[in-house]
Design a protein around this nucleic acid. Structure first.
Lengths: 121, 121
DNA sequence: TAGGTATTTGGCTAAATCGCCAAGGGTTGC
DNA sequence: GCAACCCTTGGCGATTTAGCCAAATACCTA
């Protein structure tokens, strides 16, 4: 039987934490916030600069209340930050490194698409 | 009124595609596959090398049927690949660049934790 | 103060997800 | 063959998520 904990035990030694995956739950929350086409579109748009809620609502074509909840999720995950100026609330990317994901994800998807098209041959 | 499509129109010009967010749906599927603590733990483990299903099931402490479905999701998203050898099925990371996510996500979470601890002062 | 705009929150229903159990298929070894 | 093991699939109830509407809140202007 292989010792499946050998790598994880090494990790636990470094962090001085029990091998319980609490940090994975926290990290999963970030990915969960990005796991929605509309929210992904908003993040992409925010990479060009800050936007108010009404602009993003028009972009994704949903109710403003829906968009507001999506932005709340992104804020909760630590991906965006908001600032109220007058009657409007402007959102901006908090951690631009999130945009680095897109290149990798795109490569993943193009690889998948390549295989799917090959399956039709 | 601000022209909310100015940036998106530019993007559409480059890609020669309509501004419909079909690619965002595809990308969201990748993030959705990573949006689970158990799957994240498995991906992390697979970054050290290939593992069979029973090893991963013991690692996350779930039924093998549950783990098998999780791995199926990761495979569907193009993140992992599988190979059957004898009675066992080994999974491995297909796109190691996925691991680049973790550093950024960790920075996001530590930033959030910093703010949360500051809120207790 | 009243009215219009911008945003958030609550509530509701439909849909998706999760994890378990049971059942089935494939492989190894006796 | 057949028993044991590895893995996948189907199905089920419980939980979560999505998106709309309505209501509440905050701000600006007249």
């Amino acid at each position: 039987m292989v010792d499946i904990f050998r790598h994880f035990a090494k990790y636990a030694d470094v962090t001085h934490r029990p091998p319980k995956p609490a940090q994975f739950k926290s990290q999963a929350a970030v990915f969960k916030a990005l796991a929605h086409p509309g929210r992904l579109l908003m993040v992409h748009e925010l990479s060009h600069g800050e936007r108010c809620v009404c602009e993003l609502a028009a972009l994704v074509g949903s109710e403003m209340s829906t968009v507001s909840k999506h932005l709340s999720q992104l804020k909760q995950a630590g991906i965006v930050d908001d600032e109220k100026r007058g009657a409007q609330v402007f959102y901006r990317l908090k951690t631009p490194c999130v945009m680095n994901f897109f290149q990798c994800v795109t490569s993943v998807r193009t690889e998948v698409a390549k295989e799917e098209s090959a399956a039709w041959q």
